[in-house]
């Protein structure tokens, strides 16, 4: 299994759990941690399963359900909100036809909300996978989604 290789990079010490979960999830095309992943991490670190589940479900960057190829995380914190992130959110919901926490039927997009991404200088902002988009407007959104659709 692929996760085996990832696990071996780390010492068997509980403090590496977050890093291991990151790595396993990064290796997943569906941006998520499966039940088997959680168990593999727990077995490797000799932690109770519940403990690993508790950790994985606590942090917003991890997901326990499969997500679309493009993970869109829209910032809704006050600075972005002030500059119109709710318009951006509405536009995305309209364009993708899914609500927050949902994935499009073609599994291309998952829409999530996030707290401040630390790029408020270009608010309103969002992240698609590892990439940040700032100074968003309703018009720009359409173009970005188009590009992403085409870029698949």
């Amino acid at each position: 299994m692929k996760s085996d290789k990832i696990l071996k990079r780390y010492e068997r010490s509980g403090d590496h759990l977050l890093a291991i979960l990151h790595d396993i999830q990064d290796a997943s095309p569906e941006h998520y941690l499966s039940d088997a992943d959680l168990r593999a991490a727990a077995d490797y670190l000799r932690l109770p399963y519940s403990f690993v589940h508790g950790v994985a479900s606590f942090y917003t960057m991890y997901s326990l359900t499969p997500r679309g190829r493009n993970l869109i995380r829209v910032c809704q914190s006050p600075p972005c909100h002030l500059l119109g992130s709710s318009t951006i959110s509405r536009e995305l919901i309209k364009l993708l036809g899914v609500g927050f926490g949902e994935t499009t039927a073609d599994r291309l997009f998952t829409l999530e909300m996030t707290s401040c991404l630390g790029v408020c200088g270009v608010a309103p902002a969002m992240m698609v996978n590892d990439r940040v988009y700032g100074n968003l407007t309703a018009e720009r959104i359409a173009g970005i989604i188009d590009d992403l659709r085409r870029g698949q």
């Binding site: 959680l38 727990a42 399963y49 519940s50 403990f51 589940h53 508790g54 479900s57 606590f58």
Partner: peptide
């Protein structure tokens, strides 16, 4: 001394979970 349970998720969504999420499949 078992550690079958944990709190899962956070905030108002927090709840108790056994194993990786299903009691029958837990230890």
């Amino acid at each position: 001394g078992k550690g079958v349970l944990s709190m899962a998720q956070r905030g108002i969504h927090s709840h108790v979970v056994a194993g990786t999420g299903q009691w029958t499949l837990s230890e």
